[in-house]
């Protein structure tokens, strides 16, 4: 399982801003190692964010998303103290879920 995500969620005027920093190599599959062999692709392919069991964002990544992916999005209908959960899955089937309280 990958390292924990940093998630910050804060509400202002009814809109919750969620900032997520994931920990992942995001290896493109196009880079060669010192021996000249291609390093296989290793990337997060899917990201999902949930609030009270409802999907608030679905994302799909290709090889061009930077290492340690960063994401910011805005949604309505939440309140302070409630939680936002973010889940990712990578192309090796590894997965990680973290949550943060809305401040």
């Amino acid at each position: 399982m990958g390292g924990p995500m940093k998630i910050r969620a804060s509400i202002k005027d009814g809109v919750t801003e969620v900032k997520v920093l994931m920990q992942h190599e995001m290896e493109t599959g196009l880079r060669k190692d010192d021996a000249g062999k291609l390093v296989p692709a290793w990337i997060i392919t899917e990201v999902k964010a949930l609030h009270k069991g409802r999907t608030i964002l679905e994302g799909q990544f290709g090889t061009a998303v930077s290492k340690n992916p960063y994401l910011v999005f805005h949604f309505k209908g939440a309140a302070k103290g409630e939680k936002v959960t973010v889940i990712w899955v990578d192309n090796r089937g590894d997965t990680r879920s973290d949550e943060a309280e809305i401040s």
């Binding site: 409802r54 608030i56 964002l57 679905e58 994302g59 992916p69 960063y70 999005f73 309505k76």
Partner: peptide, 21 residues
């Protein structure tokens, strides 16, 4: 294609991320 996002009702049409070029 670098990234693709789907916004359900209630989520704003807004996203920030970082890509490789």
């Amino acid at each position: 294609l670098a990234a693709h996002f789907v916004f359900p009702e209630g989520t704003e049409g807004f996203v920030t991320t970082r890509v490789k070029m």
